[in-house]
Design a protein around this nucleic acid. Structure first.
Lengths: 141, 141
DNA sequence: CGTTGTAAATATACTTAGTCAATTCTCTCT
DNA sequence: AGAGAGAATTGACTAAGTATATTTACAACG
């Protein structure tokens, strides 16, 4: 019997209760293989060589759908662009102000936000901004 | 002697080491008076009645400058728009997926993100998404 | 208190991420 | 296999934000 990590993209899509289509499989597989937090445009450029019929609007639709059903995470960078992350376990994101790189940051969840009664929380995310090692070094060169 | 909360917008700008100009004073005063996390366009529309000469590009320039020197906070909503917050003490932000409202959320800072050595952290922010009380109620009506 | 250099404000053009609408295609269910 | 709902494609469109060139005004100095 397969364990969870061995499920194919098709399986995961079917499990999530959405139609299994070519673009969805390819975009999801791309996100599982590339842990670089790509934008829709990045994904599109990364896939269009192999799949000439893919359109950019489809990538937008697919990522929106995948985020909606919880297969991927949508993260907004400090410049307002949408990036996608195939890892959905809780973790924070570090954004380098200089090179724009996005890094995963593992973090405990020992914080207790005080929300008004009756509010429904769907997701919590942690955003850290700063300078990465490489940019710090090249700065004081 | 004045305490910190009694400082005027002019004082705060001078203290931050930036030029004191009309647009900067008015935008900063607007953000201190309106705790609604407005966008640049909101600020512009809120001020242009009283100040006919103000331009939208100036509001963009001013908010960018104020955020740069730490007088205001720039927060990116889940749809990628930039909002500004005159409160710079640490607190989280709740975004309602339905009505788009942004609410302040007070929160402890007992989390310990594991960043690689040599990384410089400039800011940490907590983003919570969900549905506010009002939208939840109107949903199951 | 006027002059001057520099930073900021304005106006306008421009870029581009993202959305929308109409049409065509394709997946799933019977 | 056929029908119908949902998804993909195409191309036009929107609007937040940026860039550029010009004008204006702050503040430092004599």
């Amino acid at each position: 019997m397969k364990n969870n990590t061995e499920l194919t993209a098709q399986d995961k899509l079917r499990e999530a209760g959405v139609r299994v289509t070519g673009p969805r499989i390819r975009v999801y597989e791309y996100l599982m293989a590339n842990r670089t937090h790509p934008t829709c445009d990045d994904i599109y450029r990364g896939l269009k060589d192999k799949d000439d019929s893919l359109s950019l609007a489809s990538v937008y639709n697919v990522t929106m759908k995948l985020a909606e059903v919880g297969l991927v995470n949508e993260i907004i960078s400090p410049d307002g662009q949408k990036h996608y992350d195939g890892v959905v376990d809780f973790h924070g994101h570090f954004f380098c102000k200089c090179c724009g790189r996005i890094m995963d940051v593992s973090c405990n969840k020992d914080f207790t936000p005080e929300l008004p009664d009756g509010t429904r929380i769907d997701s919590v995310s942690l955003i850290i901004k700063g300078l990465c090692k490489d940019c710090l070094n090249s700065e004081d060169a």
